[in-house]
């Protein structure tokens, strides 16, 4: 064994590394700040925006009730969308051809119809079926309801948004579940876990890393899509604002009130999404 030879001649000094000069991007950033300042001055200086009216109606009880309905409708419809989405994904990934096909057909059907059409369709369900009956086929009736009693703007909106959301969420869930390696399934099995335990504690938590960002997107979309319920006279955030400006003609200020509240909801949801992502990305 010979020792490593030390070089006889001294090596030259190491070269210095200089940062890239970024004068142009600083100039560009400065320009953007300038434009933003001009925009702010013009928006807040323009009387037509009616900022005093905005302030007056921001905590108006009718607006707050509408805000509550928007949040509640989004929460209920999204919950249905997520739970039914998981069911659709599991059906699609099962070995059973019938379940696979039903899931595929459902997704195809509900993704194909415009949200607005579904909403109006559910609202007018009584035109198709006067009553809804639960019973044994070709046997006795167990329960029966008049369709008009069941289908309110609320139930129509929940059905319309929940059922179509499930079609989208189901596809996201399927991609997420597929992203977990088969080795995880086999390891869970080898550890004596039942299929249920393996799915909910091993596979699904790992799938969540892939599922959360697109579902967060879908949720934020739904907050705004729920504004469509004004067509079936459900007084959500936007429709409440519309009801007020139809009386006092302060159209722009009330639309700004609604806009600001949408900004607040979406901001809170984005913060929530950040923490949920952090939770599932551990490890």
């Amino acid at each position: 064994m010979t020792a490593v030879q030390t070089p006889q001649k001294a090596l030259p000094e190491p070269l210095a590394i200089h940062r890239r000069k970024t004068r142009l991007s600083w100039m560009f950033a400065g320009l953007l700040v300038l434009i933003a300042m001009f925009a702010a001055v013009s928006v807040f200086g323009n009387e037509n925006f009616g900022w005093p009216v905005v302030a007056q109606y921001f905590f108006n009880i009718q607006i707050l009730e509408g805000l509550g309905r928007t949040v509640l409708l989004t929460a209920v419809a999204m919950s249905i969308g997520i739970i039914l989405g998981v069911v659709l994904a599991v059906m699609r990934l099962s070995d059973n051809v019938v379940l696979q096909s039903v899931s595929w057909l459902y997704t195809w059907f509900f993704r194909s119809i415009p949200q607005l059409v579904q909403l109006i369709f559910w609202f007018n369900f009584a035109a198709l079926y006067r009553s809804i009956v639960v019973g044994i086929p070709f046997g006795p009736e167990l329960f029966a309801w008049n369709t008009n009693d069941i289908i309110t703007p609320w139930s129509a909106a929940i059905l319309g948004f929940g059922l179509s959301q499930a079609a989208y969420t189901g596809e996201v869930m399927r991609a997420g579940i597929n992203s977990v390696s088969d080795g995880q399934r086999r390891a869970a099995k080898a550890q004596g876990m039942t299929p249920m335990l393996s799915f909910f504690r091993i596979i699904f938590p790992q799938a969540m890393r892939v599922i959360i960002p697109p579902v967060g997107n879908e949720l934020i979309s739904m907050v705004k899509n729920t504004a469509l319920v004004s067509t079936i006279a459900l007084a959500d955030l936007l429709y409440s604002a519309q009801l007020i400006y139809s009386r006092n003609f302060e159209t722009i200020p009330l639309l700004i009130v609604a806009t600001l509240w949408y900004l607040v909801i979406v901001s809170l949801l984005s913060i929530g999404q950040h923490y949920i992502e952090k939770h599932y990305n551990r490890g």
Partner: peptide
């Protein structure tokens, strides 16, 4: 059923080439 098989598998331990530890658990 897979449920019955799961119960029987407890008698057998298995170690895989790719380890397959659960990455979301300590």
């Amino acid at each position: 059923s897979e449920y019955a098989a799961a119960k029987q598998r407890r008698a057998v331990g298995m170690v895989f080439q790719q380890f397959n530890l659960f990455p979301h658990m300590t």
